[in-house]
Amino acid sequence: MSASTAKLMSPEEIAVRAGEQIPFLLLPQPGLFAERALRLRQLAPGHAMGDYLLFAAELAQAQHEVFSRPLALSLPEQPQIEAAAKAGLPLLPAASWARDPAWLQELRELMRLLAARIAAGPARTAVLQLADADDQYLELQASRLLNGVMTGLDLASAPLIAAGLQVHWARLLSQLQARFEREQNSQHSPLLAPFGRIDDPLICPCCASRPVASITRIGAEGSGFRYLSCSLCAAQWHYVRVKCTHCQSTQGISFQSLLNEDGSMPPHSSGVQVECCEACGHYLKIVHMEKDQQVEPHADDLASLSLDLLVSEAGLIRHGVNLQLLFGDSGEPGDSEAQH
């Protein structure tokens, strides 16, 4: 396979279009994990990573089942919401937010559901062992994962723990937004929304995590505009196209995609490109709904690992994080990021 380059609209052209009324923030919807599972199953047949994609699909389906069940969480109150907004910071920063112990209940339920969906073998044994792990171990692994600390992180169980954390943060967002809408309807004066713009446009405005990829959308709201998709809570926030998501440069931006020898695009990556920045040497995947309406940032990022390998050979550094695909050496001190 080879890479092709393409140029999109200039930042100036994008800025003109950005005058259109579009939502800045799209919060996770109830079916987000079910849609991810469906997309992973679509991508698995004939794929070199087919077995893992199918495993990830079962994991996402189990996430959907857990996410669909009611579980009340401790939520920040209005003074905390106002303080975060005043400081220009995310309300629920993953690295420092005091996790509700209920997330452990969610994780264990998730592991038992997953174990029931997969065949007996080493993977199922590992899943059941994680379900029986003690609270201290799980909390320590979660803290390392959310802070990007590789030392002592169990890379085998990290994607499973991450799946539980994804459910937990998506639930936090959903419950906060639902409470805001209820209280807003009963108040005579407007309340401050729990989530909105923050000072740093490169991290999730809800939980401060890095994006897994970006997506250009179609539909009545935001058609043609680019959103960054959070690797943890699945919120999506608007970010202008043809602008580096690592250094914010608008110079030296190019796009690469996979091509077969006959010039056609592989079926597993027809809607996926890599946005490369010459200024800082970083890249982020971008998935296009106008090319494939079924794209899903997490699933399509996972299924396009060969594209990562292609651009990394050219010396580019990955900016996005996929919590179901972590790289690194967990045994060497001094490593500080779970994925580069």
Rank of each mutant, 00 (worst) to 15 (best):
F33D: 02
V66D: 00
Q29T: 15
Q61A: 15
E313L: 15
L176V: 13
Q324E: 14
L8I: 12
R318N: 10
L259C: 13
C276E: 01
E296N: 10
G50Y: 07
H188N: 11
H298V: 14
S209A: 15
L54P: 02
W237M: 10
S269H: 01
D100R: 09
L258N: 07
Q42F: 12
C280H: 03
I118Y: 05
Q21N: 13
L130M: 05
A303P: 04
H298A: 03
F33P: 02
A193S: 05
G19A: 14
L89Q: 14
F180M: 04
L107R: 06
L138E: 08
A56S: 15
E261N: 08
A15P: 07
F67P: 00
R99E: 03
Y52L: 14
L91R: 05
R99I: 02
P90V: 10
G148Q: 05
I161K: 07
L71K: 07
E332S: 11
F225W: 05
A87S: 04
C247Q: 02
A6D: 12
E109Y: 01
A208R: 09
A6L: 15
P45L: 12
L173R: 07
L54M: 12
I118M: 06
G50F: 09
S257Y: 01
Q129A: 15
L232S: 04
N322L: 07
A158L: 00
Q78T: 09
H340W: 12
A34R: 09
I22Y: 03
D262T: 08
L232W: 00
L192K: 09
Q136P: 04
K291Y: 02
A123M: 08
L25M: 13
I81T: 12
W169M: 04
V212R: 01
A314R: 15
P194G: 11
Q248V: 05
L53C: 08
L307V: 06
E13N: 10
P28Y: 02
P90Y: 03
R39E: 06
H288C: 03
D200C: 10
C230W: 05
D51M: 14
A3R: 09
C204M: 07
Q324F: 15
A126M: 01
G196T: 03
S312H: 11
E35W: 06
L91C: 10
E20M: 11
V127Q: 00
R226C: 06
A170R: 02
R36V: 10
A235P: 10
A94G: 02
L323D: 05
D292N: 12
P28I: 09
D135R: 01
L75K: 00
A235L: 08
E181G: 13
A338I: 15
G50R: 03
P76Y: 04
G88M: 06
R17I: 08
R124C: 12
G224A: 11
L138Q: 09
G252N: 03
A156K: 14
L258W: 01
E278F: 09
P79D: 00
G331H: 11
S231V: 00
N322E: 08
R217Y: 11
E20P: 12
L284E: 01
S209I: 06
L160N: 02
S96P: 00
K243D: 08
M150S: 06
Q21G: 13
V272H: 03
D301C: 05
Y227N: 09
A208V: 10
R179W: 05
T216R: 12
Q273N: 14
M111W: 03
G222V: 09
N185M: 09
N322M: 08
P190I: 10
C206Q: 07
H319P: 07
A18T: 13
